[in-house]
């Protein structure tokens, strides 16, 4: 469980994280999405106490990270930037981390096996490939058998096999009842693993929602219909749960709450000729782009619709 309240980080003039409020719950994979520079890494660094918030608070399992007696048991974090000494072997690195908490050597061997590093565990970490380095970071994150696992851009630079491995790992960790918090700037990747999404842009919360709600509020089930008699068609289609929008003088209507098939049948019943009838499918990627583009264009205003409210 991670709870952020009005979490803010300023670097001089620049506000990297702007009054973020969110809760990351156990048992699911929560995706932390945003374009590069949205403040994701800074937020994660504040969660594990590497950066101090300018204002606001963030707690892990009810307490600030630094106040836990065994921090590695609360949160295991893989940060984006490399956090190892290249001259030390993978085993020695993990062992040094383990000593601080009294974690037995047995557990070090376990995470090495879990991440498939057995053959390179005694080699200098500086010689590791990107994928191996990432696995070592994940081994370190899992070392304390943490209740919360937090990974910053874990699939960056990984080959397809590595990506698949991470995906399975994440869903497995969530299935254990752990809190899993994963950042990415790739919506497509998040769509495959995350249930819940926290979307940020320019340090601000844009959406706190589920994957399905995001698509819906982004207009995922909108049907575009064009007709000679838009006003009459509007009357014909009106009903509970149906929303119709369209510009005055335009022949085009955007309908939500009805399928293209239902609209076609009803128009035919009333003898209204249609020129166009198309279901507009919005991909998650598109929904994400729309959200974050708004964040850039209307930065600092409140016109950004937060789907979180609708959810």
């Amino acid at each position: 469980m991670i709870e952020a309240q009005q979490l803010t980080k300023r670097y001089g003039e620049k506000t990297a994280v702007d009054r973020l409020d969110f809760v990351v719950k156990p048992g699911t994979v929560t995706g932390f999405l945003g374009p590069n520079g949205a403040g994701k890494s800074t937020t994660m660094r504040m969660i594990v106490g590497l950066d101090a918030p300018t204002s606001g608070t963030v707690t892990v399992n009810g307490r600030p990270y630094a106040e836990h007696v065994a921090p590695l048991q609360e949160v295991g974090a893989l940060l984006e930037a490399k956090s190892i000494h290249p001259g030390r072997s993978a085993f020695d690195h993990l062992m040094a981390q383990a000593y601080t908490h009294g974690i037995p050597r047995r557990r070090v061997d376990e995470v090495i096996e879990l991440t498939g590093l057995q053959s390179v565990a005694k080699k200098r970490a500086g010689a590791f490939s990107l994928g191996m380095g990432q696995r070592l970071g994940i081994a370190a994150a899992l070392l304390g058998d943490p209740a919360t696992v937090m990974l910053d851009e874990p699939v960056n630079g990984l080959d397809p096999e590595g990506v698949l491995w991470i995906r399975n790992l994440l869903t497995g960790l969530a299935a254990d009842g752990r809190t899993v918090f994963v950042s990415s700037h790739l919506m497509s990747e998040m769509a495959l693993v995350a249930d819940h999404l926290i979307i940020v842009g320019r340090g601000r919360l844009l959406a706190d929602t589920t994957v399905r709600d995001l698509v819906r509020t982004a207009g995922g089930d909108t049907v575009t219909v064009a007709s000679e008699q838009p006003a009459r068609l509007r009357e014909v289609l009106a009903g509970p749960g149906v929303e119709i929008t369209g510009e005055v003088g335009s022949e085009e209507l955007h309908v939500t709450g009805l399928t293209a098939r239902a609209i076609g049948i009803r128009a035919a019943e009333h003898g209204i000729p249609l020129f166009e009838l198309s279901a507009r499918t919005v991909s998650l990627e598109q929904a994400f782009m729309d959200l974050t583009r708004d964040a850039v264009e209307y930065h600092g205003t409140t016109t950004v619709e937060t789907p979180g409210r609708a959810a």
Partner: peptide
């Protein structure tokens, strides 16, 4: 050396005090 390599992040994550 811990700062130049980034190791400090691991170190302080384990001992945040």
């Amino acid at each position: 050396g811990e700062y130049s390599t980034g190791m400090i992040r691991s170190t302080l994550a384990a001992v945040p005090r």
